[in-house]
């Protein structure tokens, strides 16, 4: 993993700073429906899947909300909206990141990748996606986009991980169906598909 910014270290920092969107009361605040007046910069440009996107962002809006509700990228799922489950994992500057736990305003100079950006222009699946299909890794599929993005980040950092290394790298992503074995089979096949 990137020694400077690991996901775990990042989340720890977010939680410590109290910036994580957590409870029911914060739901509306995090999803960017607030429209206050004032001098806060609202229209920002962020790099999502290689495209610069202009988007109207509230100060307290999380990246997950921007992706889902402003940019229509609903592949990024919200399972807990508080940094527990990993369903919202995207890749930011090659690091797996919980999109529910970062503010979009902090992403202005970042390179954001979501599950929608992995396919090649001719429609070929990314090796991780192809491997997950071949190994029937998903069950209900709700955690799958997050698992895919965690695996993509892992294989960029370590293109040839052992199963044990993959298990640790993926451990920030919960699968309530319990498909961990099948996801690890998928990661190891993705290594072969390269």
């Amino acid at each position: 993993m990137n020694p400077k910014v690991t996901r775990r270290r990042f989340i720890k920092g977010v939680v410590a700073s109290g910036a994580a969107a957590t409870t029911t009361g914060m739901w509306y605040a995090a999803n960017g429906q607030d429209r206050p007046g004032g001098a806060v910069e609202r229209l920002i440009r962020i790099n999502v899947n290689g495209q610069m996107r202009s988007v109207d962002v509230a100060p307290q809006e999380t990246l997950a909300s921007t992706l889902r509700y402003k940019l229509g990228l609903t592949g990024t799922k919200l399972g807990c909206n508080r940094g527990e489950c990993g369903a919202c994992t995207v890749v930011v500057d090659d690091v797996a990141t919980y999109a529910c736990s970062v503010l979009t305003h902090s992403m202005k100079n970042a390179r954001i990748e979501t599950v929608e950006g992995l396919e090649s222009p001719n429609g070929d699946l990314h090796p991780v996606q192809q491997a997950f299909v071949e190994e029937l890794s998903p069950q209900c599929g709700y955690c799958t986009p997050g698992q895919v993005m965690a695996a993509v980040a892992l294989l960029r950092e370590n293109p040839n991980p052992t199963r044990e290394e993959a298990r640790h790298a993926m451990s920030g992503n919960i699968c309530r169906c319990g498909s961990y074995d099948s996801y690890l089979d998928g990661v190891m096949r993705a290594v072969q598909l390269g």
Partner: peptide, 30 residues
Amino acid sequence: DFVPPDVPGKVTGRIKYAEDYTREGMVYSR
């Protein structure tokens, strides 16, 4: 073994769950 038809949609994020839908004029309930 076979590939169930919804699996590609699950790995690409294209398959839609209930909250992924919108409708013109949609309002929100709490």
